[in-house]
Write a protein that binds this DNA or RNA. Structure first.
Lengths: 74, 74
DNA sequence: TCTCATTTGTTCGTATGTATC
DNA sequence: AGATACATACGAACAAATGAG
């Protein structure tokens, strides 16, 4: 899924994957995104990378993150 | 007891300490391990670290953890 | 039945150190 | 030098189940 050797860094690759899943309806509006731990497991990445990916989408206004709860699709 | 500056991280140091206590009979088979809160206090560590240490032993098959009850020596 | 403390499970926020490119 | 990544750690808050009373 994620290629660590690509020119685009892993956190951006993941952000793009999540964005596609949102666009496709796999992650519907209002639903909760997988947790950082789940992204870590699915994509075999560290927590930093998972967090940064979600952070990209948060700054882009696509998701909202609530402490101790998770991130939700807007 | 635990040296945060050692090359071996605290959670592994604690896992080793618990393992020794099991081997020595200080934590007998079938008995309940101290709770995470108790490990936190005794070793002055965070909950993460206590949990990870027990997790190491759980994955090693030395203990079994029951939600809301605790971890038991196998 | 109800309340309360205990205990593990989960989740995000933050910080540090090390390594790699 | 800078960006990126990983491992580790601490904290905080909440959930859920158990057990004591």
């Amino acid at each position: 899924m994620i290629d660590p050797t690509a020119r685009v860094p892993p956190y951006r690759q993941l952000a793009e994957i999540i964005r596609e899943r949102i666009d496709s309806g796999q992650y519907p509006k209002g639903s909760r995104l997988p947790s950082e731990a789940e992204f870590m497991e699915e994509f075999e990445i560290g927590r930093n990378t998972a967090r940064r990916a979600v952070g990209v989408l948060r700054e882009a206004g696509l998701v909202e993150t609530v402490k101790t709860r998770g991130s939700y699709v807007l």
